[in-house]
């Protein structure tokens, strides 16, 4: 009789242990689910911020450069693997609007004010949260009927700067800075032979009289002794087109002070 009772109590203990085991599994499952859910939504918001910030950068700079694209991918990679789709709505010289769907045709191509850029990123595989949520303990897992919480983020922005400065501002900047630092300028010149505006492969140097030049940088440079760009006319070296579009680059020293300035005139639209 005692043996039978002992066996019954042993069975009871086994049942208790099994129930306790399933309960613990259930609780652990939900703890992991909760944790992965929090990570998922936090990561989703971070990805949203990264995408939105990128659109802000592009719409402000007016160009999506290769280095900017790589930096964007590096930021995204912190939160997982993503497929990046970039769309652009651009206006051509004839005023026609067209859509570009390939990053290769959008990269390093300057936008005009009024163009649109849109970035859509999607996670390339389901996140942990989605996998755990769709886990089925009793039957074979069927993801087709499960909830697909895939990360997706989209942001659009209108370009508000073409990234260039006007010739009139270049004149201001040269007048202001060329007395203290060297300023190099590359301009377009009208070619009488081809009847086009061509880039002259020559830099003009405005700089302080004390500047002796840099052998490497100034080998193909025409030095201009004065630093008054308005003194130069259309037919002389160093003339600046008031309405021209120029890119501006600067060199900084260790204390982030500007040591050199470069202006390059762009071809007209």
């Amino acid at each position: 009789m005692k043996l039978i009772n002992r066996r019954k109590s042993e069975k009871g203990q086994i049942a208790d242990i099994m129930m306790f085991f399933f309960f613990i599994v259930f609780v652990i499952y939900f703890i992991i689910l909760f944790t992965s859910m929090q990570f998922f939504f936090r990561a989703q918001k971070m990805v949203d911020n990264v995408v939105r910030d990128e659109v802000e950068i592009i719409r402000t700079k007016g160009i999506f450069t290769q280095s900017e694209y790589e930096s964007f991918l590096a930021k995204l990679s912190k939160y997982g693997n993503y497929n990046v789709n970039v769309f652009a709505e651009k206006q051509d010289n004839a005023g026609q609007r067209g859509k570009l769907f390939s990053i290769e045709t959008i990269k390093d191509q300057p936008f005009k004010v009024g163009d649109f850029i849109q970035i859509l990123v999607e996670s390339s595989k389901p996140p942990l949260f989605s996998v755990i949520l769709n886990t089925n303990f009793l039957f074979s897992s069927n993801h087709k009927n499960g909830s697909d919480f895939r990360m997706q983020s989209l942001a659009s922005g209108m370009i508000c700067s073409d990234g260039f400065i006007k010739g009139v501002e270049v004149i201001n900047l040269i007048t202001k800075n060329a007395s203290s630092i060297p300023v190099r300028l590359k301009t377009l010149k009208y070619s009488t032979t081809s009847n086009t505006e061509d880039m002259v492969d020559k830099w003009y140097l405005y700089g302080p009289s004390s500047y002796t030049g840099d052998a490497a940088k100034d080998s193909n440079t025409t030095p201009i002794t004065d630093y008054n760009p308005t003194a130069h006319t259309e037919n002389t070296d160093g003339w600046i087109n008031y309405e021209g579009r120029y890119t501006m680059d600067v060199t900084l020293n260790d204390s982030y002070a500007i040591t050199e300035m470069y202006f390059t005139e762009m071809l007209p639209y």
């Binding site: 949203d48 009024g114 700067s161």
Partner: peptide
């Protein structure tokens, strides 16, 4: 996302 969309639109409008 709604707030970001509205902010983006307001900022873009003011920038242009």
């Amino acid at each position: 996302r709604y707030i970001k969309a509205v902010d983006m639109a307001v900022n873009t409008a003011m920038a242009n």
